[in-house]
């Protein structure tokens, strides 16, 4: 009887393990970024630039955390296309949340980009212009 019960627990436990782990970076993305940059990271026509395979992110790696924190405006070029709208700031995000967010963006839209560490992000945020 106890043996049956414990195998039942084992099975339930296995099923529990199959549930995807919560992804805190994704939660921030869905709430704060997805409306503009899209569920697929492709942005929206000439209005919102893509994150998917964005050369801008790779070339400005150390500035991305600041862009997320402080927003941005002015003309920029992403993957050969010009964008010039305003992105809102996210002053309430913590360094840890920004790190998770950046790593979610990497895994979802920039698979070759190097993982961000909390230390790197925290250094970058200190140097925001």
């Amino acid at each position: 009887m106890t043996k049956n019960l414990s195998s039942l627990f084992l099975i339930v436990g296995l099923f529990g393990a199959c549930n995807p782990l919560p992804n805190p970076g994704k939660e921030v993305y869905v709430e704060k970024c997805q409306n503009c940059h899209g569920i697929d990271g492709n942005g929206l026509k000439g209005l919102y630039p893509p994150l998917t395979n964005a050369d801008y992110i790779k070339e400005n790696r150390e500035r991305i955390a600041c862009i997320i924190m402080n927003g941005m405006e002015g003309e920029i070029m992403v993957n050969g296309k010009v964008y010039n709208e305003k992105m809102p700031s996210n002053p309430l995000l913590t360094e840890a949340e920004i790190t998770n967010l950046l790593n979610y963006i990497n895994s979802a839209f920039l698979p070759e980009n190097k993982t961000f560490t909390l230390k790197e992000v925290s250094n970058n945020l200190r140097d925001c212009k």
Binding site: N35, L44, Y48
Partner: peptide
């Protein structure tokens, strides 16, 4: 045009 919340999604769907 500068709406940060639901408008981008509305624009996308209207498109």
């Amino acid at each position: 045009t500068s709406c940060p919340t639901i408008c981008p999604v509305m624009t996308k769907n209207m498109l």
